[in-house]
């Protein structure tokens, strides 16, 4: 309908060109199947047989969802390449790239909140030369000690596995604790004072646990002296009865027939499952104590992203 002046079109072209040059354009990764040189990218820890420092330390349910993305960049052309290691390819991939020197920009493992592992590449750059044998790039866990400690913390005693889901027990810091005693297991430097009959939330961000306190007295009290009435987990710092923790698949916990907790008593949030639309929570209620256990679900990826346990408060 409109004829546009050449100057206007030139302005648009200049705008697009400058956006591209400033890096605001979307990243388009290069092809990794058609080059002349081979680059073997492997996640070393998955190949180790020993369970010490091995990827196998992660529980199977969570381990099966871990994906590692390795981003490379050709230092001459500045073209980026993305290599994905996952259970389907056994965490081993042979990329076909053109000859040249490639810099490792980023190594990222999914579910890091639930695995505690931090990844690095064996070298910062890789050189590919035509005619040479294939080159290798190894990916490994660079915080093995913390990783092992994290995973060991999630290896519970049998008692927590077999205890009932509303037993108000937790596996934390390598021991079974009562939810009411969780205050001794969080490190928060806060002197919050709670008004009479009021609630407050104390969040240990490093550990990934938020505790809700109730001052059930008629005087102002420090939060440490208040009663624990609920906890929320957003990192894998604890196990619930049955061995339930963050990152576990939804069907492992909530399936009517095979789940650790069985069919939920109800759901909250948006019912459209499988799409990233709104929140979804599976709710379990104990008829005897009135306690409520909510599992925050990532319906698109199918795993648990948050756990909330609320103790029933009697007037």
């Amino acid at each position: 309908m409109k004829k546009y002046k050449l100057s206007q079109l030139l302005i648009l072209l200049i705008l697009i060109a400058s956006l591209s040059m400033t890096g605001c354009s979307p990243v388009l990764y290069g092809n990794t199947v058609m080059g002349d040189c081979s680059l073997n990218v492997a996640f070393l820890n998955v190949l180790a047989n020993s369970s010490e420092g091995s990827f196998q330390a992660i529980t199977e349910d969570i381990r099966g969802q871990v994906e590692i993305k390795v981003e490379l960049q050709n230092i001459i052309t500045e073209r980026k390449y993305l290599i994905t290691l996952n259970p389907a390819n056994g965490y081993f991939y042979t990329a076909k790239l053109n000859p040249g020197t490639y810099r490792v920009i980023d190594v990222d493992g999914s579910m890091s909140k639930y695995t505690g592992m931090h990844l690095s590449a064996g070298s910062d750059t890789v050189e590919l030369v035509r005619g040479n044998d294939s080159s290798n790039l190894s990916i490994y866990i660079d915080n093995e000690e913390e990783f092992l400690a994290f995973q060991n913390n999630l290896k519970p005693e049998m008692e927590i596995i077999t205890t009932g889901r509303f037993s108000r027990k937790l596996w934390m810091d390598s021991e079974i604790i009562d939810i009411q005693d969780v205050t001794n297991h969080i490190s928060v430097d806060s002197d919050t004072m709670v008004k009479p009959y009021a609630k407050c939330d104390i969040h240990d961000e490093a550990k990934g646990i938020k505790v809700t306190y109730l001052n059930d007295s008629s005087e102002v009290r420090s939060w440490r002296a208040c009663k624990v009435i609920g906890i929320s987990l957003d990192k894998s710092c604890a196990l619930l009865p049955g061995g339930v923790t963050l990152g576990m698949k939804t069907e492992t916990v909530c399936n009517k027939d095979t789940g650790l907790y069985g069919e939920p008593h109800g759901f909250e949030g948006v019912a459209i499952y499988g799409l990233p639309i709104g929140d979804l929570r599976a709710v379990y209620k104990d008829q005897n104590s009135g306690d409520k256990l909510s599992l925050q679900l990532d319906s698109m990826n199918g795993y648990i992203t948050g756990i909330t346990y609320e103790l029933e408060v009697y007037e």
Partner: peptide
């Protein structure tokens, strides 16, 4: 997806909200 995750039919799942 609901059948896989919860072992429920869509009707049973929706009724629980």
């Amino acid at each position: 997806s609901i059948e896989t995750a919860f072992g429920l039919s869509f009707g049973q799942y929706f009724a629980a909200f």
